[in-house]
Amino acid sequence: MQKLGMGQAVNQALKEEMQRDPNVFIAGEGVGVSIHVNPMFPTHGLLEEFGPGRVKDTPVSEAAIAGLAVGAAEAGLKPVVEIMFNPFFTLASDMIVNHAAKLRYLSGGKSSFPLVVRIKSGAGFGAGCQHSHNLEAWTAHCPGLKVVMPATAADAKGLLKSAIRDDNPVIFIEHMGLYFAPMPVPEQEYLTPLGQADIKRQGRDLTVVTWSGMLGVAMGAAEKLSQEGIEMEIVDLRTLTPLDRETILTSVEKTGRLIVLHEATRTGGFGGEIAAVVMEEGFRYLKAPLRRVTGPDIPVPASPPLEKFYIPDQNDLIKAAREIM
């Protein structure tokens, strides 16, 4: 099997979908000519292959980029636009939150907006809080949007292809920490359905629900706890909305314990939503109080020891697991 970083997997998905469907185009800041000359980046080489008609470098204008997607999608094109870093989502948010998410509803189901907004995210590169801010809970709070956050290269590829073919607006959030570590990706064409979580590790004692960059932390911690005889089951959510309640609840029924792990800050984070679902629908399965392991309620600091303090790690997860075992 080929081994790709997540950026390369995204690149393959874009390439395949652009080859398949002439209505797919990409737009954003530096998606064609970039300050990075690096094959690990998601849009590398696409300008050369598809030309400037379908690979549109835009000015620094996030509102216009998102609006471009909304308008073009209504006309039947399949825009895949990029927001360079998650915090700049705020500049695009009117078009996404008030328009991509709502215009179909406002039309009484008559108009549709088959667009994808790819957002690069994640802490861990020392750039500080105006580049690193995990805002997935904001987007998940908007009915009308689907929110996808892959944790592996293979999932990224299959999910992005599904997102592009989906007739709804999809927010596709890529953790940049995953761009550079090669992971296995199937060679043949495949689609990974939206709205389905994936159990990345089976276990009987404790369910960890996580997504995106935190999957690696969960898998590492699971290895360690396994040596002590504690078997964690790791549920990789993959899609925040629509939420795969069934996979979560089935797992919690099996293990009786739940930890939600995410890199985003705690208060108002999507972990709270998962906790609420389990309390409402799976309370009777729980043998212990559930736990959230998350970033603390602070902006992401730049300095390495501070940023490390911010990002949840294996020790945080292991500590929480021991508390409820």
């Binding site: 020392g126 750039a127 105006q130 730049a302 300095s303 501070l306």
Partner: peptide, 14 residues
Amino acid sequence: CKKTGCNKGKSGTL
């Protein structure tokens, strides 16, 4: 990104 920086390491260069 040091403690003695003008923003105590919260900012860095940006």
